[in-house]
């Protein structure tokens, strides 16, 4: 679990965001939604490792792709690492996303929360799962610089929202989600009505008909999200109201990254209704959005 990985690439792609490609042992066992815990130097300052989500897994080449935004001294130092150097990596660590086998998968991302969702896009069987990305960012510059190097090249449906209205929907990405959920509910209702009349025929508005039906007659529809806490809370609440399964990838200040120090915890409501602590680094970072308790009032 502790490896030295060779740096293949460490390039700025725009808007203070860098792409870091590492070659080594992590790729072989990495799963969507997991992360690596990187040591950014060999001195004691900055002291702690940096947790960075895995954004790409290339098992044949033995490479993982990470994206990071320069936010502090650790990430600033990381930008100085050159191709050919090695980095100490703990990983892959954490519990990641469920990969749906069929149906529709809606991915909701806020800012750099986009990157961990890429591994999920890569992992699903796109002939059986229809994927769409809803992505919110600060402005057009951020979306174009970052998306142009990543999402827009991925041959996947997407819609964007910007806070300043300079690109896509003017407002929050959760507005797009709400519209999608309502649209989905309306289609589901129409489908059920249609089914009553012509039982067993696939609904034409779902495209190719490749989607496998659930026994109750509804295609599996799930949401996965990553972004700021406030956004994730809104996503979880919207999905909860509509009865849509949702997984959220949480972010928290971490120390050990392996579940030993209890530095990065969240609160969940378990199936029997009791409140319990979970470790974001080990039990997460991906959690069932309906379980997470967002406001921890003491």
């Amino acid at each position: 679990m502790l490896h030295r990985e060779i740096v293949i690439e460490n390039q700025r792609i725009g808007a203070d965001v860098y792409r870091l490609v590492l070659k080594g042992a992590v790729a072989a066992t990495a799963r969507p939604g997991q992360f690596v815990h990187l040591q950014v130097g060999t001195t004691t300052d900055p002291l702690l490792r940096r947790p960075i989500s895995i954004a790409g897994i290339d098992q044949p080449k033995g490479e993982i792709t990470l994206y990071y935004r320069v936010v502090g001294r650790g990430t600033a130092k990381l930008t100085g690492v050159r191709a050919g150097e090695t980095l100490s990596v703990i990983g892959p660590v954490g519990t990641g996303f469920t990969v749906p086998a069929v149906g529709e998968l809606l991915l909701v991302a806020g800012g750099i929360g986009l990157f961990p969702l890429f591994t999920l896009i890569e992992a699903v069987d796109r002939s059986a799962v229809r994927v769409k990305v809803l992505w919110g960012g600060e402005n057009r510059t951020f979306i174009q610089e970052v998306g142009g190097e990543t999402l827009f090249k991925m041959d996947v449906d997407y819609a964007v929202a910007t806070m300043d209205g300079s690109m896509g929907h003017a407002g929050l990405v959760t507005d797009l989600l709400q519209a999608a959920l309502e649209d989905r509910a309306a289609r589901s209702l129409a489908h059920r009505t249609a089914e009553g009349q012509t039982a067993g025929t696939a609904p034409s508005d779902w495209g190719t008909g490749a989607l496998t039906e659930r026994p109750e007659g509804r295609a599996a529809f799930t949401v996965a999200a990553c972004g700021p806490k406030g956004m994730l809370q809104a996503v979880a609440e919207s999905c909860g109201q509509m009865g849509v399964p949702v997984e959220v990838s949480l972010e928290e200040r971490m120390a050990c990254g392996v579940g030993a120090c209890l530095g990065c915890v969240c609160l969940v409501r378990t199936t029997d209704g009791t409140l319990a602590r979970r470790r974001v680094c080990k039990d997460g970072p991906v959690f069932d959005g309906r379980e997470v308790v967002w406001d921890e009032a003491d």
């Binding site: 002291l47 200040r253 921890e296």
Partner: peptide, 9 residues
Amino acid sequence: GNPVPRVAE
């Protein structure tokens, strides 16, 4: 235990 954040560098 305490609410997060629980660690700071």
